[in-house]
Amino acid sequence: MSVVIETKGLVKRYRGHVAVNGVDLTIERGEVFGLLGPNGSGKTTTILLLLGLTEPSGGTVSVLGLNPLRDPLSVKQRVAFLPDQVGFYDQLTARENLVYTARLAGIESGMAHRRIDESLARVRLEAVADRRVGTFSRGMRQRLGIAEIILKQPEIAILDEPTSGLDPQSTHELLTLIGDLARGGMTIVLSSHLLDMVQSICNRVALFNRGKIGLCGPVETLMGDVMGGTHTVEVDAAGIDLKEILAGKPHVMRVRQDRQNNWRVDTDADVRPEIARHIIAAGGELRRMSIRQTSLDDVYVRYFEEAANVQAA
């Protein structure tokens, strides 16, 4: 494994406000890396800095061993970018748009035509290849953006919010396409606030918060770190204090009371029978119990809850 993207202490200031505040990232070849965070947390700015499309106020970026500021053409030759809500020339057809990209990318014309046909087929747009992009739906445009990446055959593809604003069907299609690209050996960096999608395809994620990376690592590790467990058991019971009862019991990582007679227990295994037994033994009245696996959503919500609490404190 070799490092393809590395940033150190990356800072970007826009007039008076800091968009990216000291980001250290290391992404390795072949990874699918997710940048996660709420809107305005610095994901897109980080991406633009990686591509050399905006100048950092401080810190260093290295992409494929090159500096995107010093050598932008080589970087942009080997890295493809699908911007947030990608735009195409509406008056041109899908094929004409790709021809323009191919020319800008300096792909020789015979090869370009072959690759365009191939990429349109892969994103299943060959039937509408000669229709104006103005008539395309959001999902089709996004797929055309993926076709552009396939056409360019880059080593790294950077996707900014690739599924935002898509219906579930199109989201699924797009994720399948991205998964295919990753299996083809391409390094993929994608940003999103849709967590289940990131969870399903990313090897590693970085959680952005106010221009900084709050957490970074494989999805499972993050769950362990933030949630303290992989399962959440929700308990409705009366006449007891669950926190007291479960203190120090095996597999129980944390107990929190949400409302009167309602608790959430983070565990690292399915321990419902044990919990039930403890409640009954303590003379409590068990009314309901449910379990679910933690998802990245919980990590996200919990992490930002805590970050906000720290801020407020």
């Binding site: 932008p72 053409l73 699908l82 911007p83 509406d90 990209t101 800008l104 990318a105 953006g145 552009e148």
Partner: peptide
């Protein structure tokens, strides 16, 4: 306005 600028500028041109 057509949001084509980032896409075009991410091609290897200045």
């Amino acid at each position: 306005n057509r949001r084509t600028l980032p896409r075009v500028l991410s091609q290897p041109i200045y």
